[in-house]
């Protein structure tokens, strides 16, 4: 303002202030659009993704002009499980693989699943035994135990029974959780359309979501491994191990960590609890946290919207399990076939 200009009137000051607010808001919005957290809508209930960042997925189909990507799964193993397209010529299935969608391989090709990669590794080491993948999305411990009973109800016998345990297998109280459970959104979650329209709002909502995730959801996970529930589930797992032994096999539990914030991993207590209880009850257990936390958690995701383990994580798991089996000499019975 030069000496000859009049000072701003009150109206002009108000106008200036309004423009300042609007301008700043717009700059903030631009900033978040450029540098803020990305907006993604979780859609991993059907394992269909709107992007293919690693170039790993197949194009499933187009919807409303947009391609959807993913891996089509063949789950024709009994009443659910995982198999490949052509299963001819595979070695005899002398190992039973149990678990949920993580072991089933959501978002991962059959040949890249942990159980199939383990089958390949065993084959390469001269052991002709493959893994029957009876993992089904959503199974928890009780269902896995029942599935074992089903798989052996016709007299089938397995030298090894591998159980890929996920930290929600002990019965997560989902009433304590809203939004994410570190793996996927919960049913009933309502989509906020303004997260797609405003990057600034998306940042606020994302931050709040992460805070709730770390607080409420973590607590739900930790609570499921405490008190009477822990006691009951430990007994259940012990009964399973005993039944497998009675049937002539050996149970090996593989504890998969949640792929979340390995630098400040909030579930170390759970892993330690599981290690301790397995030791006390003479159950073979592999804690895969030290195996997987050598990488960034997000590098092991199937997709930014789907925190199931990707093919790289599956390979790391398969290698670690193979090493454990060799070290514990649990492959000896397989060599006799």
């Amino acid at each position: 303002m030069t000496q000859n200009q009049k000072p701003l009137t009150a109206r002009e000051k108000v106008l200036a202030f309004v423009f300042f607010l609007v301008g700043t808001s717009l700059l903030v919005e631009v900033g978040f659009r450029l540098f803020g957290p990305k907006y993604y809508h979780f859609n991993n209930m059907f394992a269909e993704y709107t992007t293919n960042p690693r170039g790993y997925f197949d194009t499933l189909y187009e919807k409303d002009g947009q391609a959807l990507y993913g891996i089509k799964m063949n789950t024709a193993v009994g009443v659910g499980g995982r198999r490949g397209v052509d299963m001819r010529g595979r070695p005899t299935e002398k190992i039973l693989g149990l678990g949920d969608s993580q072991a089933q391989g959501q978002g991962v090709r059959f040949k890249d699943t942990m159980y199939e990669q383990l089958s390949d590794t065993l084959s390469n080491s001269g052991i002709t035994a493959s893994v029957r993948n009876a993992s089904v999305s959503g199974y928890d411990l009780d269902e896995i135990v029942s599935r074992y009973a089903y798989e052996t109800s016709t007299g089938a016998q397995y030298d090894l029974v591998l159980y890929a345990m996920v930290l929600d297998d002990y019965g997560l109280n989902r009433d304590e959780i809203e939004g994410l459970d570190f793996i996927q959104y919960q049913p009933g979650y309502t989509f906020d359309p303004w997260r797609a329209r405003s990057a600034a709002w998306n940042f606020v909502a994302h931050t709040a979501e992460q805070l709730a995730l770390s607080k409420d959801t973590s607590r739900a996970y930790l609570n499921s491994f405490r008190g009477k529930n822990l006691e009951a589930k430990t007994e259940q797992l012990t009964r399973l191990a005993q039944q497998v032994s009675n049937d002539g096999g050996t149970l090996v539990v593989m504890v998969l960590p949640l792929l979340y914030d390995f630098e400040n991993y909030p579930f170390g207590e759970i892993h330690q609890t599981l290690v301790n209880s397995a030791s006390e009850n003479n159950i073979h257990l592999i804690d895969l946290l030290p195996v997987l936390n050598t990488e960034q958690a997000q590098d092991l995701w199937v997709h930014p919207t789907d925190h199931h383990p990707n093919e790289r994580a599956h390979k790391m798991v398969a290698d670690a399990v193979h090493q454990y089996l060799e070290t514990q000499q649990l492959t000896e019975s397989l060599k006799n076939h």
């Binding site: 978040f32 659009r33 450029l34 540098f35 803020g36 957290p37 990305k38 907006y39 993604y40 809508h41 859609n43 709107t50 992007t51 409303d64 947009q66 309502t190 989509f191 359309p193 997260r195 797609a196 329209r197 990057a199 998306n202």
Partner: peptide, 16 residues
Amino acid sequence: VGGGLNMADAPAPPPP
């Protein structure tokens, strides 16, 4: 569509 460089991949909001 959501717009913005960081939101280029964002799909249209799905129906509830």
